[in-house]
């Protein structure tokens, strides 16, 4: 398969302060990637570098097998065949939807241009809305216009900069899935920037977690959740708590909650003190269990309650329980541990 995007050891610095440090990643044709991280981690800078708006101080970027950025050379954005969807859509307010979409199609003949716009409007269910102006559309519709405007010239890669952040929370995931469907149908390679992991999970094949400018892990959503590469990723993705323990043998950790069995997915040595990750779904509510912990907080999540439990030594655990098990704060409830794979990192 054709390699569409290749970033090698990219470093971006503003006034000699690096915001992206030595990031390398690859994306094959038709794949959807995602850069995920807390705000200020450098994900937008990296995306803008791929688009050609930021120069690199170290490293290279290849698009479709062609070197487009290296230190001292930055090919202009208009010459790289990239499409970009912006955070606030950046639609032209004085142009109609059709004109907005046709904007990047200036090389084509009139009839062909019209046909392409129609085809794209149909793709995103906006047939017959072509004569409207952007402000007459809803946020979700504007989003879709911005998407097809970027897709219209058939770019080598589509870049999406927090494309759903201006929309309602309920709309986001649904739209993320819709957009994924549209991109896949057209076999478009895309890269998305977001700070919302649900968006990332809904849309991307491969997700890169960025923290303080470093790419911590470049993997599928499943692997990020179940096989995090380091403490930062484990903390950032999903919910969970670290409890301290000690590795007793290959598959067992001794903790304040007793011995926890499972398969290690991280590198640890026998006898080493470690921090073990416990996700809310690793802790099962079981009234018959001898291990009783006090409920200190509870949050209603609809189908489930997320209970915060306190151990004797003060460490707090999170436990997801079906919501018909309604316990009061201060009550003791029984739990058992069912940890499939052990995520443990040596105690620093």
């Amino acid at each position: 398969m054709q390699r569409q995007l290749e970033v090698n050891n990219a470093t971006i610095a503003y006034a000699e302060i690096p915001v992206v440090r030595g990031v390398s990643l690859e994306l094959d044709a038709g794949e959807i990637g995602c850069l995920l991280g807390p705000s200020g981690c450098g994900k937008t800078s990296l995306l803008r570098a791929i688009a050609g708006f930021e120069p690199l101080t170290v490293g290279e970027i290849h698009l479709h097998g062609r070197c487009v950025t290296r230190p001292g050379m930055t090919l202009a954005p208009e010459k790289r065949r990239v499409g970009m969807v912006f955070q606030d859509f950046a639609l032209y307010p004085h142009l109609t939807v059709t004109d907005n979409v046709a904007f990047g199609l200036r090389g084509l003949g009139r009839r062909e241009r019209r046909r392409r716009v129609e085809e794209l409007l149909t793709l995103v269910d906006l047939q017959g809305q072509g004569e409207k102006y952007p402000h007459q559309l809803s946020g979700g519709q504007q989003q879709r216009v911005a998407l097809i405007r970027a897709m219209a010239p058939r770019p080598d890669i589509l870049l999406l900069d927090e494309p759903f952040s201006g929309l309602d929370v309920e709309l986001r995931e649904q739209l993320a899935r819709e957009v994924r469907g549209i991109l896949q149908r057209d076999g478009i390679t895309a890269i998305l920037v977001t700070h919302d992991q649900h968006e990332a999970f809904a849309m991307a094949d491969r997700i890169g977690v960025l923290g303080e400018g470093h790419l911590r892990q470049w993997a599928s959503g499943y692997d990020l959740y179940h096989r995090p590469a380091d403490h930062f990723v484990a903390d950032f993705i999903g919910q969970g708590v670290f409890i301290s323990g000690r590795v007793v043998d290959a598959g067992q950790v001794e903790t304040a909650l007793g011995r926890v069995n499972g398969v290690f997915v991280t590198e640890v040595q026998v006898g080493e003190p470690v921090e073990l990750l416990l996700r809310p779904d690793d802790i099962i509510h079981d009234d018959a269990s001898l291990m009783q912990l006090e409920v200190v907080e509870k949050a209603f999540r609809g189908a489930e309650y997320l209970y915060t439990l306190k151990m004797q030594d003060g460490t707090r655990l999170l436990c997801m329980v079906q919501s018909h098990h309604d316990h009061e704060i201060g009550e003791m409830i029984g739990i058992t541990l069912e940890v499939g794979h052990l995520v443990a990192f040596p105690t620093p």
Binding site: A51, F53, M84, D88, F103, R106, R149, P153, L159
Partner: peptide, 14 residues
């Protein structure tokens, strides 16, 4: 500010 100029550039318009 609205990133419209960046949008122009990515659409290949100077």
């Amino acid at each position: 500010v609205n990133e419209e100029i960046d949008a122009l550039k990515t659409l290949g318009v100077s």
